[in-house]
Design a protein around this nucleic acid. Structure first.
Lengths: 199, 199
DNA sequence: ACAAGATATGAGCTATTGCTCATATCTTCC
DNA sequence: GGAAGATATGAGCAATAGCTCATATCTTGT
C-alpha cells in the first residue's frame, strides 16, 4: 500500500502526506517504546510527530488504526527478513535463518517488539494486520512442512509451538537487555531443534 | 500479610475489610479478563466489586497497587503449586511437575495469566511483586542446579531460557484456546528436555 | 494570477479517568 | 445507651482522553 510508486516528482503533494503518515507511525513507535501503552495518546503522538491532531485523524480513523499501521510496518520488516529462510537448501539451514531473522528483528527495538507482540494479540484484527499475521504464519508452515525436519506432530501444531518458543525466548531476552545476537540465536536454535528431534 | 489469623470471632470487623479487599481483587481480575487493560478503571472495579470507589482507595493507594495485589495473589497460587517440584526424586520428574504446575495455572484463567505476565514486566516493581517474582525464580534456579539435568550453560541462563520456553508455549496455547492440559504439558516437556539435552 | 483540490491547523467538545474528602453507617466494648 | 474507632459512601474535582470541524495554508495546472 505504501509501496506504490507513481512516477517520481509527478505529485510531490502526495509526498507531503506520505511523510506525515510516516512521521506519525514512527512517533507512535517512539512513544510506545519510551512511555508504554499508558503514554500512548493521540495528542502525544501528534505532538511528537510535529503535526497537529487534526492531521493524525486525516490519515488514521482512530487510535487503534494508528497502532495497526505500526504493527503492519514492523511485521512487514520481519517478513522481509524471514523470507530468506524459504530459499535455504536444507531444513536446518532454513530454521537457522528464520531464527536469526526473528532475533535481529527483536533486538533492534526490543521494547517495541515486545509491546506490539502483546498488542497484536489483543487488538481487534483489522484486515491489514490480519494479512501480515497470516503471511508470517505461512512462512512458518512452509518451513516445517519440509520433510527433512521430520516433525512428530501435525504441522500446524509444530508451527505454533516453535513460533511460541522463538517468541518466548526472544521476548524474555530483550526484556532483560540481552544484546548479543549470536549467543541468543544459538540457544534458540538448540531449543527448537531439541523440540523437533527429542523423542 | 493477608494470611494472619487472630483468634477467630474476636474481631469480625476485620473480616469485613478482608472480604472487601478480596472482592476488589477478584473484580479486578474479572474486568481484566473480560475487557482487558482498557476497561480496567478503578471506578469499574469498585462497581463490579459492589463497593464504592472510596472503599477501593481505603485499601489500595493507587490503581497500580491494586494491580500489584492481583499479581501477588496469582503468583502465590502458582508458587504453591510449583513448590511440589522441589521434593521430586529425579530432576526429570521435578521438571515435569514444574511444567504441569505452570500449565494448570495458565489454563485455569488463560486471559488473566497472559495479561498479568505482560503487566508484571511493565509495572514499576513494588516490594511485594518483586518478592513473589524472586521467589518463583528461586524455584527455577534450585531445579536447574540439579546435577542430573546437566545443563551446558550457566544456571541463570538456563533458568531464564527454560522459563521463557514454558511461558512462551503456554501463553500461546492459552491464547488460541487450547484446553487439554496433558497434551500441552507433554509438548512443553519435550521442548525443555530437548533444549537441555540437545548437543 | 487564480481556481480548486489537497493538506494542515488547533480550539474545543464530551466523556472518562484516577482520586479526595466530608459525611454517614456499622461494630465493639463498657 | 453511648463513646470511639473501623469501615463505607458517593458527589465531585482537576486532568486528560479521543476525536470533530470550521478555517487556513500549500500546491498545482492553467
Amino acid at each position: 500500500m505504501a509501496q506504490q510508486r507513481p512516477s517520481p516528482r509527478k505529485r510531490p503533494t502526495q509526498g507531503r502526506a506520505q511523510a506525515t503518515v510516516a512521521a506519525l507511525v514512527e512517533a507512535a513507535a517512539r512513544i510506545l517504546e519510551q512511555d508504554g501503552r499508558e503514554g500512548f495518546s493521540t495528542n502525544a503522538v501528534a505532538e511528537r510527530a510535529g503535526v497537529s491532531i487534526g492531521s493524525l485523524y486525516q490519515y488514521f480513523s482512530s487510535k487503534e488504526a494508528l497502532l495497526g499501521a505500526l504493527i503492519v510496518r514492523e511485521t512487514d520488516l520481519l517478513i522481509a527478513e524471514a523470507k530468506a529462510a524459504l530459499v535455504e537448501p536444507t531444513g536446518r539451514a532454513a530454521l537457522a535463518t528464520l531464527i536469526r531473522a526473528c532475533v535481529s528483528h527483536q533486538l533492534r527495538r526490543p521494547a517495541l517488539a515486545r509491546l506490539l507482540d502483546f498488542e497484536e494479540a489483543v487488538l481487534p484484527g483489522d484486515t491489514e494486520t490480519a494479512r501480515v499475521a497470516e503471511e508470517f504464519r505461512q512462512i512458518g508452515l512452509l518451513l516445517f512442512s519440509r520433510s527433512d525436519l521430520a516433525p512428530q506432530e501435525p504441522v500446524t501444531v509444530v508451527t505454533q509451538d516453535v513460533m511460541a518458543i522463538i517468541k518466548g525466548m526472544i521476548d524474555a531476552a530483550g526484556e532483560r537487555g540481552e544484546t548479543v545476537q549470536v549467543d541468543l540465536a544459538v540457544r534458540v536454535e538448540r531449543a527448537v531443534l531439541g523440540y523437533l528431534t527429542h523423542t
